[in-house]
């Protein structure tokens, strides 16, 4: 049940990698932002495959639905022109070193992951157990509002502080502009 279906995993992982590359290589910043949306989507797909439906939904709700919308909004307002990558300043040695180091790192990771006999430790909340307790949303909500109430509330205070700070800075700049 909890076994991730390989076909779907490779599909979503492939989409995520392909669009991550597009984020970097697209010349138009708005297209890059749209590609990043697709990356988040693919991540949500992988979370859903791992039976973490709530995380998948929140990923779409928060990252794609809210944060990226603001990103695109700002990019559209700034109206950045297409900037071609300037290759003049880069020497061949530098490119060679970068490619070489990346390739070596990739080989190192592949070998170490293959060598390691890694068996994921099954924690307190296995998918079966979570289903028994009434599903993802229920379990997370109960934990958040009982055991982890203090960190949860402190985070909200931190966010509130950030909002007030932002408004204060914006107001100060406005005043300076007027005078």
């Amino acid at each position: 049940m909890s076994q991730i279906q390989p076909v779907f995993f490779y599909f979503f992982a492939g989409v995520a990698i392909a669009f991550s590359l597009l984020v970097i290589f697209k010349k138009n910043p708005v297209s890059s932002a749209f590609s990043l949306v697709m990356v988040f989507f693919a991540f949500a797909g992988i979370y859903a495959l791992l039976q973490a439906h709530l995380v998948a939904t929140l990923q779409i709700l928060v990252y794609t639905g809210a944060i990226m919308v603001l990103f695109v909004f700002v990019l559209m307002l700034l109206n950045i022109k297409n900037t071609p990558i300037d290759w003049k300043g880069t020497s061949l040695i530098r490119i060679g070193t970068t490619v070489g180091v990346s390739a070596m790192l990739a080989v190192f990771f592949i070998v170490s992951f293959k060598k390691a006999n890694f068996v994921p430790a099954s924690g307190l909340f296995s998918p079966e157990r979570v289903d028994e307790m009434g599903g993802n949303t229920q379990v997370l909500a109960e934990l958040m509002f009982s055991e982890y109430i203090l960190p949860f509330e402190l985070t909200s205070v931190l966010l509130l502080g950030a909002i007030v700070g932002t408004v204060a800075i914006a107001m100060r700049k406005n005043k300076r502009g007027e005078s």
């Binding site: 779409i60 794609t64 639905g65 229920q138």
Partner: peptide, 19 residues
Amino acid sequence: NVGLLYIFAIASLGVYGII
């Protein structure tokens, strides 16, 4: 079991079409 959150998540994507 995410029910309503799913609706909110997907509905918030509609804005991309307009943007």
